[in-house]
Design a protein around this nucleic acid. Structure first.
Length: 554
RNA sequence: GGCCUGUUGGUGAAGUGGUUAACACACUGCCCUUUCACGGCAGCAUUCACGGGUUCAAAUCCCGUACAGGUCACCA
């Protein structure tokens, strides 16, 4: 029996050949140096921050070079696939503003000429490639059961031998074609394995764009190519898809580094020119116990891309953070080019960190605060409203009802040289300015500070309102009057005087402004009091003062 | 266990034979100040995981050790 006959027995329905597909998916007509890369997730329903980092780089580099970036769904494992898992991924990418030229655009649709972009729909293509391998005696059917494999592994462990299906352990490798045919006709379960030409004692060099040249032993594992269900294993799918989709650069996580010798061997076996590889360090998380581990989808809420969307972190800020992780010189570039958009920054493979970086929420918060602080009040309003419309309709209603008022609130100490930096994400803004809305204001939990005596508080507020407060005052006059109030009540209106002779006074101006501040907002820490009072207006101020006097806890 | 990768302050890191070991975040103190935030200033690694070696000179080169991570599936 010939190899060809065996191949035909295994895949009787496959009658196209590799060149058919090569013609169908011709080399891309792109300009010199253009990079084609991709994001190839399993349809698990959501994107992990680590994948987002890789994806972000993978989509940025084609952009920088007028290349192509596409999305391919790797769903050859049913266990990993989730219903509507594709949509979740598309939504996550969309929420982070990651665009692509080709690939899936919904559960059922895709765009681009190099598809299908879902692996389960490419079964025939993989089988065509494997059929070729069988014909060339570079692949063979393996009938080993899971149990046989288990026992083999145990044996190997016992003998301290290398684990895996290779050399003398590769039992089915030496089965005769006739024997194989007999068992196939008999209906035995089987898979297809690579007949690895490698020698473990020989070396192969992997040229990695971020790690440089790494020496590995040649692969001699007869890895599985096609599973019992007829679908390929990652290794085969990767070569077939990235060859046919004409990918030039494979960006993936470090966990793939070890299997790159297998991939290189496969490229060679097919006699295809391999793409360039870049393996990125894993994104890590440090536990309270001090143990470092991979940021985990299951354990860490912040691992999911959707977390940032729900919290309302600005996309642009997250992108900035990803860039700081991606390229160490990014922050320096930002400082040198404060007016440039981050889109103009070019990623440099050589500057990509080799070691896995620790995921730092604090840093994201900082970047985010800086970013939001530079926005105009209207921009903040719009983003906040967009967020609220999706995640908090109560807030959205208020923002719409009091649009101009809300913008004015957001404009407090903004749009100047030294803007406040107190908002890290949109979900926390309303919680910080709730007291500006009567609908949200609660006359409870007053944060009185130095002065807690009810009579004194009442006294201060009464006199202030009756004698000094005038809503038409400008800031200077307003402040002057507070000082007058201090003088009248025996509080130091000047901090320097107070520090020199604290005993001469009942307290100082801080105590007075704090009483007014807390009465109006319940909070001891707020932005500029004058601006708050300007917005709150007279009726509200009088109302809140009487509330504070009546209902508060002392 | 085999193979591979990594290890610079709390964190992200710059640095590839001669630097006061950048910078950013966090933290601490001070100043400014009607609170907070902002801003300004200062402090924070006697030392680059450890042990050897090469060299006039090493975080930077070599060897070994330790630690961490990855991988060795009919998962990706």
């Amino acid at each position: 029996m010939t190899n060809k006959e065996l191949a035909n027995l295994i895949y009787p329905d496959i009658n196209k050949d590799i060149s058919y597909y090569e013609n169908k998916y011709p080399l891309r007509k792109l300009k010199e140096g253009a990079i084609v890369s991709r994001f190839a997730p399993s349809p698990t329903g959501f994107v992990h921050m680590g994948s987002l980092l890789t994806t972000f780089i993978a989509q940025k580099i084609p952009k920088d070079t007028d290349g192509i970036f596409y999305i391919r769904i790797e769903d050859t494992d049913q266990k990993r696939s989730l219903e509507n898992g594709i949509q979740g991924i598309i939504d996550d990418l969309k929420s982070f503003d990651i665009s692509y030229d080709e690939g899936v655009i919904s559960e059922t649709e895709s765009k681009g000429e190099y598809g299908p972009y879902i692996q389960s729909k490419r079964k025939e293509i993989y089988q065509t490639f494997v059929k070729y391998l069988i014909e060339k005696d570079l692949a063979y059917p393996c009938f080993c059961s899971e149990e046989t494999l288990d026992n083999m592994r145990k044996q190997q462990e016992k003998q301290k031998d290398r684990l895996g299906y290779y050399g003398k352990w590769a039992i089915c490798r030496s089965l005769s074609k006739e024997e194989c045919a007999k068992r196939i006709i008999n209906g035995d379960n089987y898979i297809i394995r690579l007949k690895s030409p490698g020698n473990f004692n020989k070396k192969i060099v992997v040229h990695d764009l971020v790690r440089g040249s790494i020496e590995f032993p040649e692969n001699d594992l007869d890895v599985v190519l096609i599973k019992n269900d007829g679908l390929p294993i990652y290794h085969l799918a990767h070569i077939v898809d990235d060859y046919l989709m004409r990918t030039t650069h494979i960006l993936r996580a470090e966990e793939w580094l070890s299997s790159t010798p297998i991939h290189l061997q496969l490229w060679q076996t097919f006699d295809f020119k391999p793409p360039k590889y870049a393996h990125l360090g894993l994104v890590m998380k440090i536990e309270d116990s001090g143990i470092r581990r991979k940021l985990s989808k299951r354990k860490d809420p912040e691992a999911a891309v959707s977390y940032y969307h729900e919290k309302g972190y600005p996309i642009y800020a997250i992108k900035q953070y990803l860039l700081t992780l991606a390229n160490s010189n990014f922050e320096g570039w930002m400082d040198d080019n404060p007016d440039k958009l981050i889109e103009e920054f070019k990623i440099d493979f050589k500057k990509i960190s080799k070691s896995g970086s620790l995921f730092d929420l604090e840093k994201i918060i900082n970047i985010s605060k800086n970013y939001i602080s530079k926005l105009s009040a209207l921009e903040v309003y719009n983003s906040l409203l967009t967020w609220a419309l999706k995640f908090n309709s109560n807030y959205a209603d208020l923002l719409i009802k009091y649009k101009d008022y809300s913008i004015a609130i957001l404009n407090i100490e903004r749009e100047g040289k030294k803007p406040r930096k107190d908002f890290a994400c949109y979900s926390e803004i309303m919680d910080q300015i709730f007291y500006m809305y009567d609908e949200l204001f609660l006359a409870e939990k007053y944060e009185w500070q130095a002065i807690t005596n009810k009579n004194e508080i009442k006294n201060i507020l009464d006199i202030y309102l009756i004698k000094y407060y005038d809503e038409n005052d400008d800031k200077e006059t307003w402040f002057k009057k507070i000082k007058d109030l201090c003088d009248e009540l025996g509080y130091a209106s000047n901090m320097k005087d107070y520090k020199l002779n604290p005993d001469k006074y009942k307290g100082n101006i801080t105590d007075i402004t704090t009483v007014i501040r807390v009465a109006l907002t319940t909070k001891s820490m707020t932005p500029d009091l004058y601006e708050i009072m300007q917005l709150l207006k007279k009726d509200c101020i009088e109302n809140r003062v009487s509330l504070a006097i009546k209902k508060s806890n002392y």
